[in-house]
């Protein structure tokens, strides 16, 4: 069941488009904002609300990499692995994160606190390597900086 807040947030998004379907990505993000990810049940609820079939909505949901169809940790880290960040050492950050969290890219740390996902260029190439923790962007990240971010983020 969608909460009243979710429902009204989706309906607000719906206002911006001539068709219900057009609001589907926004709607999924509304649900994801509160629940972290999109469960099958949530998918069905959103589909019903927008008069889409489960198949139609999942076809869209599984296309976009920022819609999570599997559970994620309490906080999601997007680690840029695009070219400028690679030149500036994002692989090192990846290794460091793996060591610290015991989880590879795409996995969730055992304590369920962090999921680290690879991300396309975050538009902060002049401060490469860059990463985002939830909605905050961090630039010029070093392994030490990673430790600090993880600390803050927990």
């Amino acid at each position: 069941m969608l909460t009243t807040q979710e429902r009204s947030a989706i309906e607000e998004e719906r206002e911006h488009y001539p068709t219900a379907r057009a609001a589907c990505v926004e709607a999924l993000k509304v649900v994801q904002r509160t629940r972290g990810w999109i469960s099958d049940e949530a998918l069905r609820d959103v589909a019903d609300l927008l008069k889409m079939t489960l198949d139609e909505l999942d076809g869209v949901a599984t296309f976009y990499n920022l819609i999570y169809r599997r559970p994620v940790g309490r906080r999601v880290m997007l680690l840029c692995d695009s070219v400028s960040c690679w030149i500036m050492g994002c692989d090192g950050l990846k290794e460091h994160l793996k060591m610290r969290l015991g989880a590879d890219l795409g996995q969730t740390s055992a304590d369920g606190r962090f999921t680290v996902l690879p991300a396309a260029c975050l538009g902060a190439c002049d401060h490469a390597p860059a990463l985002m923790l939830d909605e905050t962007l961090y630039g010029d990240v070093t392994p030490q900086e990673v430790d600090r971010i993880l600390q803050e983020g927990s």
Binding site: D55, E56, D58, T62, F63
Partner: peptide, 9 residues
């Protein structure tokens, strides 16, 4: 038909 689709990328 609406119960069939393409998924993923």
């Amino acid at each position: 038909g609406r119960d069939f689709d393409v998924f993923g990328a």
